[in-house]
Amino acid sequence: MRDAQQLQGNILTPKGWIQGTVNFSDRIANIQGAFSDPAKNDLPYILPGFVDLHVHGAGGKDTMEAGDAVQVIARMHAQHGTTSMLATTMTAPVSDLEQALQAISISCKERGKNSARVLGVHLEGPYINPGKLGAQPDFATLATLEQVQHLHAIAPIKLITVAPEMEGHLELVKQLTEMGMQVQIGHTLGTYEEGVAALENGATGFTHLYNAMSRLDHRAPGMVGAALAHAKFSEIIPDLLHVHPGAIKAAMRAIPHLYCVTDSTAASGMPDGQYMLGRQVVHKCLGGVRLEDGTLAGSTLTMDQALRNLVSIGLDLQDASRRVSTYAADYLGLPERGRLQINSYADIVVLDRELNLTAVYVEGEKIDLANA
């Protein structure tokens, strides 16, 4: 149990803004004050810590490196307000995945100092369509239940990306759902009908909506059409490079719990230059990360910038906060994260009136932002 702490400002609770104080140790003890419009004062904003379900890297490190990579990544993202995250893999040979998951499992068991909580694994590949790799290396393969169970035994797979049109994958979607995983549709050339079938078999979301999936056409709605017509949850990358603001707004009108991810790479928080994304070399330049052929390859986004981007395209702060915190926590079934209420984890971010981070708390630990 950590020592009792207190913050004062405009506190965003599930019921709305409260001007007052939040008292906490590792969990929130109470929130005191009165409901108030934050526009009527100049106090800081106190929001739930950010929840990022798609993190490949940061600080020059990639999850597939194994070793201490995930610890470095979790520390860097905590400095930008991410209080919990999923370490995300790349399409790779099983031996590479085993090595990466062994390292991730260590971080899942014990949170490092000044670090975000690693909730588990987002297995993005290798069970994808080789015709829609995007920036994934060419190691796509058909999935088997036995292989997924083997990987899950090494580190907890909370979320898995699957192309449902591949042979045997539709039945696998049902089996993985029964194992307690969230199954997302992604890196897919599937039709609208195949997307609907996957949802009916237990799939619950879509990986980086619009990117690396069959597009919407009015006579062939594709996987994007299946998402817009039927999904309750989907992730999207709001770096304003991967998806046009208008397309983000269209998705928000269609998908009730559209949530944001960074899809961040080793280049996040680093200067322009050359980095690794799994087995592939990527180049950071002009705020983006690309393969040699110009294909977007993840991002340099951090969740505090994602919040600012959402506000910049017209969302109010309360809605933007839900999309970088609450909805992702809800998607994983984590009612004690992604919101500020009594007995929730004290995962808290404090922002000034320009939405710059001034403090971050992970389970009550104040994160050192000196090297942010």
Rank of each mutant, 00 (worst) to 15 (best):
G81A: 13
K113H: 08
I313A: 14
V362E: 07
A140Y: 03
A153S: 07
A203V: 02
Q6E: 05
S264W: 03
L291M: 13
A297S: 13
D293V: 05
G298H: 01
Y275F: 12
L7W: 06
L301T: 11
Q99C: 13
S105T: 14
P48Y: 10
L101G: 04
Q71L: 14
H230L: 11
S264P: 15
N343F: 14
Q71K: 00
L241P: 02
T13W: 02
M76D: 12
L357M: 14
R339S: 05
A226R: 00
E124R: 13
N23Q: 15
D37A: 12
A267K: 01
D319L: 15
L97K: 04
T13M: 07
G278T: 01
H56M: 04
V362R: 03
Y127A: 14
A143P: 03
N114Y: 02
L133T: 09
S234N: 07
Q147L: 10
V51D: 05
P48T: 10
R2C: 08
L286R: 11
P44K: 09
Q6R: 05
D293I: 04
L277W: 01
E171T: 11
G222D: 03
I342N: 09
T82K: 04
D293R: 04
F50T: 02
E193D: 09
L199T: 09
D42W: 06
G33A: 13
L307K: 03
P238G: 12
A231N: 03
N114R: 01
P245W: 08
F50V: 03
V261E: 00
Q318W: 12
D26R: 15
K113D: 02
T295S: 15
A226I: 01
D316K: 15
L53P: 02
A58P: 13
A220V: 07
P126E: 02
L334V: 08
A328P: 00
N309A: 10
G222P: 00
V121P: 02
A135E: 11
G246M: 14
G168E: 10
G20P: 02
G273R: 15
T295I: 14
A254D: 15
V70G: 05
M252R: 12
Q318P: 12
H56W: 08
L151H: 07
T207A: 03
L101H: 00
A39C: 15
L176M: 04
G134P: 11
S268F: 04
H152A: 12
K15M: 07
E178D: 11
A143G: 06
T188E: 09
D304M: 14
A267H: 02
L101A: 05
H208G: 00
L315E: 06
G168K: 08
V72Y: 12
G269P: 00
Y345K: 03
T204G: 10
D239Y: 01
R219F: 10
D352E: 11
M90R: 07
